[in-house]
Design a protein around this nucleic acid. Structure first.
Length: 220
DNA sequence: AACTCGGGGCA
DNA sequence: TGCCCAGAGTT
């Protein structure tokens, strides 16, 4: 596992998301917005969004239609605008206007699921966590770190067993960058992959077609 | 477990 | 045009 992480670290030496350096509230909003769209899109939207809105009260001060307009370029924006306003109200009512630091409290907020909560606690509050998104899940399963039919939660548990706690947060970043830019969902770049020799699915993909034709199921 | 939300990016 | 994408909520 350490070999895998060091190789990924060499491939993407500055694997991190700029949004992770924002304050807890902006980070929570940004990760909530990122669901099912690329971080580049979120960066474009939040650049102006965070100029206009700084506090939970700011998001509640406008009609929801106006907030929807401000995040219009993001997919699923109607859900997200409603979530942001409900979340803002809950922060004011229940948490003194601040983002709670406990994972369990975070997931009570609308639009904040397990993945978002993991990103927030690990990047804003220094609590080690491995957020499993589609990239992390795909990469883990291809490498053979988890089984193909494992749930997201099972993938997270297995990664936590494989990686020392102090490296959980940067492990998350490395797997995401590796999955986003190299081990893509379609056409993974196996031919030039430095992890090919330890990758379960990569070796399978790189087998010459003639072998597959001659021996369809050599192991069964 | 399947369905829904949804515009942007890319082939 | 068609397909996929740094998820979460509801049924």
């Amino acid at each position: 596992m350490s070999h895998i992480l060091s190789v990924m670290g060499e491939m993407f030496p500055d694997a991190h998301c700029e949004l992770n350096h924002r304050n807890p509230f902006e980070l929570t909003i940004a990760v909530l917005l990122s669901a099912q769209c690329t971080d580049e899109t979120v960066n474009k939207v939040t650049a102006s969004l965070f100029q206009k809105y700084q506090t939970p009260a700011d998001y509640l001060a406008v009609p929801i239609e106006e907030l929807e307009q401000d995040i219009r370029r993001i997919g699923l924006f109607r859900n997200k605008a409603a979530h942001i306003q409900k979340l803002s109200q809950m922060l004011i009512d229940n948490y003194g206007g601040e983002v709670p630091q406990q994972h369990e409290e975070l997931t009570k907020l609308p639009g904040v699921g397990r993945k978002t909560a993991n990103v927030v606690v690990s990047n804003a509050f220094g609590v080690p966590a491995i957020a499993v998104d589609t990239h992390v899940e795909r990469v883990s399963k291809r490498l053979g770190l988890a089984k193909a039919d494992d749930s997201v939660l099972e993938v997270e548990k297995k990664l936590m067993k494989l990686v020392p706690r102090e490296h959980w947060t940067d492990t998350h970043h490395r797997l995401i960058f590796f999955g986003r830019y190299h081990c893509k969902a379609q056409n993974p770049n196996c031919p030039v992959c430095p992890l090919l020799d330890v990758c379960k699915e990569g070796k399978q993909r790189m087998k010459p077609a003639v072998n597959r034709k001659a021996k369809p199921n050599p192991n069964k």
